[in-house]
Design a protein around this nucleic acid. Structure first.
Lengths: 209, 209
DNA sequence: AAAAATATCAAACATCTGTTTGAAACATAC
DNA sequence: GTATGTTTCAAACAGATGTTTGATATTTTT
């Protein structure tokens, strides 16, 4: 059987999409199993509980993302001896998302809405799980920026990085809706790549301010 | 009886805080009425339904916010004949939040998490309600920026404004948690005003990029 | 091919959800 | 002070939720 057609991954696919669309609490296991065309009980059989399913959805996405990102940072570090430019670093942050989009044939906004939701779950199990398991990616990124901007203080780097993440997550999470509004106003539907191309100079200018 | 001690406003207060902390679906009417120390049935008596309660929570916050913001923009427009600086406009956007924080003795992050949640509710009744009723504030803001940057195209203004909103909402929504992390790293707890003072140059540089 | 382990299924379970009800308490008007 | 309208309250309601069960089917191992 194809690896993407197992009951387990059919559930993950359906859950990922529905969680991004509606949120965690607003998505029932019955809705998930209906879309995945599997039996209701199979969620608890394969994942144990809804909580674990949510974490597994994030694990699948974040492990794919951070492995591509880490590879990208490795090659950047080895090819360039001196410090990297802001634009290059920001592209390294975003491009794994575009790669994932192509590979999975799924909008970036799905992933970003998931991330945004994890972020909003300030008190929940999810935020702890994500930061425990993938916080090192953010740390690595912080170090690269500290290297690129030796004249900025550490807490300035820290905060500017979060301003940047806010822009990225927020804009990309709403990019589908925003692009529709923009289309109505300006008679042209932008590609997601164009939105990103517009955003990176904006963010780079802020980082350098 | 004090206007803030009515059953209705006790429910609004409790709901506002709980919605921001946990989300809408994750907050039951029983949790709300327990914290507000009122009877369960009083929510449906005073608000009709949970849906209406959610909308009323937003209406209370957004009408207070946008009335202060509009007043601020009015006085800015009348005092300065030529176009306004980015920094001034951004301060006008944020300062009503600081005023609300003082007046209500409640963290800004509560309001911002509420806004972020409304934003995440891409398909729900709430997003429509908010944009229908308060979208004009955003339009007014867009026009001011178009005036300040006549050389930028309209869709550039549109997108940069959304990058800015993303940074603002995301950072301020997580400001409590972020300030705690920053405190552990740098041995100093920043005031929310300091975070904003750091953020405005960042955003202004992006707008001007 | 028999045996063992794994996976699927329909049905039931207990619990929690928003909402409604009808009576009681309270406030206001005449 | 009685009558009228408004608000509070405990209890019940119907429906949805995550989870468990035990039987059946499927796959893997021997």
């Amino acid at each position: 059987m194809n690896k993407n057609d197992t009951t387990k991954s059919k559930i993950l696919d359906a859950a990922e999409q529905l969680f991004a669309e509606r949120g965690f609490a607003e998505t029932s296991l019955r809705t998930i199993t209906a879309r995945a065309k599997v039996n209701l009980a199979s969620v608890n059989y394969h994942f144990g509980s809804k909580k674990s399913l949510i974490q597994d959805v994030f694990d699948r996405f974040l492990s794919e993302y951070s492995s591509v990102l880490n590879a990208q940072l490795n090659s950047l570090e080895s090819n360039q001896s001196d410090s990297l430019t802001t634009e290059t670093l920001l592209r390294a942050l975003v491009s794994p998302l575009l790669a994932l989009e192509k590979q999975r044939e799924q909008s970036i906004s799905i992933f970003m809405r998931l991330l945004g939701r994890a972020y909003a779950e300030t008190q929940g199990h999810l935020r702890r799980h994500v930061t425990d398991k993938y916080g090192y990616v953010l740390v690595r990124f912080t170090l690269l920026f500290q290297n690129a901007y030796p004249n900025l203080s550490n807490d300035q780097i820290f905060w500017r990085l979060h301003y940047t993440l806010g822009s990225l997550i927020f804009t990309l999470a709403g990019s589908d809706a925003l692009r529709e509004i923009a289309e109505a106003d300006f008679d042209r539907k932008m590609a997601i790549e164009e939105v990103i191309d517009e955003m990176i100079p904006f963010l780079a200018a802020g980082m350098k301010a």
